[in-house]
């Protein structure tokens, strides 16, 4: 049987954003499972197709763009009502990093819990990221890194964000955290994110605390 993620991967590689979006929108699964069981395996598969010499880097970029677009449409219904929210979260990929989909899915989970979310996109220099953060003062800053040689840069980003005076919570995720132990570079306010369930769990706990009036 062909799995939903295989259809999704095929639509991404075909550049068919309508088909990609309807595969997400029409799927009966709750959104976190759509992220975990359709988008994630499809994107991994596309990476492996490059290793098997079936597609080119250009195809990968196109697929990422289509995926990004379909995901943005999928979460659009949440976006509009969040404009007034006090809870703000900012996400970004390190400079020289293009792997944007993982952090977009994490951002989507925040949107669904009615946070105001800004995703600053791939390839973001630290200075830009810092000035955006200072201006907007998000409660959570999510960092994503996929390429192991960028770990020294990741260290630098974490250290810089930990210095911010209002002490935002920092979340670090992406492929590098599953390949290398980066916890030694993280202070107390920084959390390493290994999967989407962990983020969803944290958000739920926080929502429950707020509902109980616990500060």
């Amino acid at each position: 049987m062909t799995e939903a993620w295989q259809h999704f991967a095929a639509a991404l590689l075909a550049g068919d954003e309508r088909q990609a979006y309807s595969l997400l929108a029409d799927d009966p699964r709750p959104s976190i499972r759509v992220y975990k069981e359709i988008i994630t395996p499809a994107m991994y598969d596309i990476g492996e197709k490059w290793l098997r010499n079936e597609i080119t880097v250009a195809d990968e970029h196109l697929a990422t763009s289509v995926c990004d677009f379909a995901l943005a449409q999928y979460i659009f219904p949440f976006k509009r009502i969040n404009k007034q929210s006090e809870d703000k979260a900012m996400f970004l990929c390190l400079e020289e990093e293009q792997h944007v989909i993982g952090s977009k899915m994490v951002a989507a989970l925040f949107e669904e819990q009615h946070w105001q979310v800004r995703h600053l996109g791939p390839n973001l220099p630290l200075a830009h990221a810092l000035s955006s953060a200072e201006e907007w003062r998000p409660k959570v800053i999510g960092l994503s890194a996929a390429i192991p040689y960028r770990i020294p840069a990741l260290k630098e980003y974490i250290a810089a964000f930990e210095q911010l005076p209002w002490k935002p919570k920092i979340m670090v995720g992406g492929r590098v955290v599953s390949m290398h132990d980066i916890r030694p570079y993280c202070g107390r306010q920084t959390q390493v994110i290994y999967d989407l369930d962990q983020v969803a769990g944290w958000l739920n706990e926080l929502a429950e605390e707020q509902a109980d009036g616990v500060r």
Partner: peptide, 25 residues
């Protein structure tokens, strides 16, 4: 070439999503 392609796609992507969301709104 790849970097150029990636940045063109990025621009297109953000423009597409802006127009699309404006339409939806």
């Amino acid at each position: 070439e790849i970097d150029q392609l990636a940045s063109d796609l990025m621009k297109l992507r953000s423009r597409l999503s802006e127009t699309d969301f404006e339409l939806l709104e």
